[in-house]
Amino acid sequence: MKILKTLILFSTAALWAAGSLAAMSAEEIVRKRDENEHLDSARVQAEMRIISRGRETEKRMETLISGDNSLTEFTNPRDRGTRFLKRGQDLFLFFPDAEDIVRISGHMLNQGMMGSDWSYRDIMESDKFIELYDYEITGREEFEGRDCYILEGTAKEGADVSYYRRVSWIDSERFICLKEELYARGGRLLKEYFVTETREIQGRWYPLRAVMENRVRADSRTVFEVESIDFEAEIPEETFSIERLRK
């Protein structure tokens, strides 16, 4: 009897320990997502298709990222040579025809980038999600055939973010966000983000094709497609300078 009690006690302890190891906290999940999706340094070539009520326009760009800084250059015919330099919270714009370099006011970071459903802040955000939002796990469900944690993030006090609240479906195995709902402070659903293609590149899962759907306006979405990405690109510090904007 004593042996049986010991066995039961041991088994219970072992199960509890295994359970603790398996259940991750919201913070751990978001940190793992950040490890995959946050870009410390990268060279990205991408295409953005803005689609609304039967009309469509296309933008192509190359972005260099290092820490808080990024440099984006558009290569499609209409915007060819237009460049954005982000240094911390400062944003500079280079107009190729005029060769003017103008600092863009901070409020513009929340506006749609080049008419898309992505804001400048969405594209150029350099902070990790874990630094901007407080998260809690609200559920777990299958999405597009993948087991996902559902996390709700609320903007931290004083965090400068485009969306006050975001509900994220994060792949429980690959730790990549597959779907996200983005809400205004008042609770209104503004946009929904869907990842339609992912790939493991240089040891991390990354969204290669994503769609941002505007939920305030019917039939409006922007498709963002990564054509190539290099997480190990060596980008010199002087890349992120006003001088480099002039090229």
Binding site: S105, H107, Q111, G112, R217
Partner: peptide, 13 residues
Amino acid sequence: DYSLTVSGYRQIY
């Protein structure tokens, strides 16, 4: 200068 978004997508500058 100032910009704002009205109704979630209409932009005013």
